[in-house]
């Protein structure tokens, strides 16, 4: 109402919002991040140009981390699931996120895709973004760190052309370094350009083909795993339905008839129908103490630190 005379006319008011336009995406990303942290999973958002070598880097990672870490991935692609199939073949349980015309992944797409992969039973989980050096940089997905793959074949000035992407990177993996002798490219110039767009650049030079530098990359992953919070994520009741029906399709070596709290002592090293793998490994952020379930199959649980 008009405040001057109360005549009933409307009035124009300025409403200060001062909120990120992507606040909605950021809320879903925070939810994803809490889940990853709660399960003790190192989640990485892997970005880079089409053809930068993102998938090949993950294939090399699978070879190097074999027997050490359980890996998993979701892979964003405009039209195909080729990358996810390559990762599966390399031993990384994967799911494609086909984005259609979408040029990037957002937190909601990742959240939905997580329902289809046993991400809790992984140590390192890769979110392989759509090949693109522009849009993916501005969407938080809930990752612990951003990794940008930049190949030496892309030209020395790529960082200067796409400053937003490189500024967002916690690590740049310089790929295809075995090709340097065949190219008119100076690695020093690439590194110098990175310093002009990243205040604290961290770069690892690798070749997925020869395996050079992969040990350094694996060491970086290990250091990031050590930085993961050791406690469960923030206590929150689950209001979504993706984990709770507890259907074991594999032979189950233990029985529970009394409905008491119990832990699974066997290691789950394979994908199975339920996403929640309680006590799959002791590195899980929540142990069986948080996790009471009765004999009726369904159960409720809350994460408490």
């Amino acid at each position: 109402m008009c405040t001057t005379c109360g005549c009933g006319d409307t009035s124009i008011v300025p409403v200060d919002v001062h909120e990120k336009i992507l606040a909605g995406n950021d809320r879903v990303a925070a939810h994803n991040r809490a889940h990853f942290a709660g399960a003790g999973v190192l989640a990485l958002n892997l970005m880079g140009s089409p053809g930068a070598g993102k998938t090949a880097l993950l294939e090399a990672t699978a070879r190097a981390a074999k027997g050490r870490w359980r890996l998993g991935a979701v892979s964003g692609d405009l039209a195909t699931d080729n990358d996810a199939r390559r990762l599966e073949a390399a031993g990384i349980p994967s799911r494609a996120i086909t984005t259609g015309q979408g040029c990037h992944l957002d937190a909601e797409l990742v959240h939905n895709a997580l329902h289809g992969v046993p991400w809790q039973a992984t140590d390192v989980f890769f979110i392989e973004n759509v090949g693109n050096l522009v849009c993916p940089a501005i969407y938080d997905l809930g990752q612990a760190a951003n990794v940008v793959a930049l190949s030496v074949t892309e030209g020395e000035d790529k960082p200067l052309k796409y400053p937003v992407m490189f500024k967002a990177a916690d690590l740049v993996v310089l790929t295809k370094c075995d090709l340097v002798p065949h190219l008119d490219v100076k690695v020093e110039t690439i590194l110098d350009n990175l310093k002009r767009v990243m205040p604290a650049p961290r770069v690892i030079q690798v070749s997925a083909r020869t395996g050079a530098g992969i040990d350094e990359w694996v060491a970086w992953l290990a250091s990031r795993r050590e930085k993961l919070p050791r406690t469960a994520g923030p206590g929150h009741a689950h209001d979504h339905t993706h984990v709770h029906p507890h259907e074991h399709t594999h032979a189950h070596p233990h029985r529970h008839a009394d409905g008491t709290v119990h832990g699974h002592s066997h290691g789950h090293s394979h994908a199975h129908d339920h996403l929640h793998a309680p006590g799959a490994e002791d590195e899980h952020g929540h142990g069986e103490a948080d996790h009471a379930h009765g004999t009726d199959g369904g159960h409720e649980h809350e994460h408490e630190p």
Partner: peptide, 13 residues
């Protein structure tokens, strides 16, 4: 590096 909705001017009863 941010994109913010700062203000909305609206007509209210």
């Amino acid at each position: 590096d941010e994109m913010l909705l700062e203000t909305i001017e609206m007509e209210v009863p």
